[in-house]
C-alpha cells in the first residue's frame, strides 16, 4: 500500500496534466495551470527544505569524521550565513547578501570556470592525438572551429569562416539533432513507464 498510493497519485497527475496540455478547453487550461503553477511551486519548496537539511546533515557528519574538515566547515558557514543575511537585510542591490554574492561567490565561480582553460590546454597537449582516421577528422574539425572563433581565421584564409559554418550546419547539427531526438524518445519512454507503474525506482526501497 505504501508504494501503491504514491504510484496512483503520480499516474493520475501525470495523465491529467498530459491530457490537459493538449486541450484548449477553459477547464483543462485551469487544471493544467494550477498543477504547473501552484502545485509545482509547493513541491519545489518542500524539496528545497529536504535538500538543505540533507546538505547540513551530510556535512556535519563529515566534520565529525574529520573528512575535509576545513572545506565542510566553510560550506556549512555559507549555508547558514546567506539565509541570515537575506532575512535581516534583504537581497536587494547594496545589501550585505549581494555584497557577499558579488565579491565572493561571483569571483570564486568565475575563477573555477576559468581554470578549465588551463586543463583544456594541458589536455590538448597530452590527449588530442591523430591516432586513427576518425581521430584525425575530429582533430581537423576542432582546429577549424578554434581558428574560426578567433580574430585571425579570416586573415589566414577568407574561406575559413565559411568552412567552419559548414561543419556547424551539417555534421555538427546532424549529430546534435540525433542526440535531441534520442533524448526526446528516451524521456517519453521513461515518462510512460513511470505513469503506468513499470518504472518504480523513483519510489526507492525494493525493486
Amino acid at each position: 500500500m505504501r508504494r501503491r498510493i504514491p504510484q496512483l497519485v503520480c499516474g493520475l497527475f501525470g495523465l491529467v496534466t498530459f491530457l490537459c496540455y493538449f486541450s484548449s478547453h477553459p477547464i483543462a487550461r485551469k487544471i493544467y495551470l494550477t498543477v504547473t503553477l501552484d502545485y509545482w511551486q509547493i513541491i519545489f519548496a518542500f524539496t528545497l527544505i529536504v535538500g538543505a537539511l540533507s546538505f547540513v546533515r551530510v556535512n556535519l557528519r563529515a566534520v565529525e569524521r574529520g573528512e575535509d574538515r576545513p572545506y565542510k566547515i566553510v560550506s556549512l558557514i555559507g549555508v547558514v550565513l546567506m539565509p541570515i543575511l537575506a532575512l535581516i537585510w534583504g537581497i536587494r542591490g547594496g545589501s550585505p547578501f549581494m555584497w557577499v554574492f558579488e565579491n565572493i561567490q561571483v569571483p570564486m565561480q568565475a575563477t573555477v570556470f576559468s581554470l578549465l582553460a588551463f586543463f583544456v590546454a594541458s589536455a590538448s597537449y597530452r590527449g588530442f592525438r591523430a591516432r586513427s582516421l576518425q581521430a584525425a577528422i575530429l582533430l581537423g574539425a576542432a582546429l577549424l572551429i578554434l581558428i574560426s572563433r578567433s580574430s585571425i581565421g579570416d586573415l589566414i584564409w577568407d574561406r575559413i569562416p565559411e568552412a567552419a559554418e559548414w561543419v556547424r550546419s551539417n555534421p555538427a547539427m546532424s549529430a546534435r539533432r540525433a542526440i535531441l531526438i534520442g533524448i526526446g524518445l528516451g524521456s517519453l519512454t521513461t515518462s510512460v513507464r513511470v505513469l503506468v507503474g513499470i518504472e518504480r525506482t523513483w519510489l526507492g526501497g525494493e525493486k
Binding site: A117, A121, Y125, F128, L139, L143, R149
Partner: peptide, 17 residues
Amino acid sequence: AQTTAHMYVILMILIGN
C-alpha cells in the same frame, strides 16, 4: 586574449602530435 589562447591550444595540439 581569446585568439592568442586558441592559437596556443592549437600549438599545443601540434606539438603533442
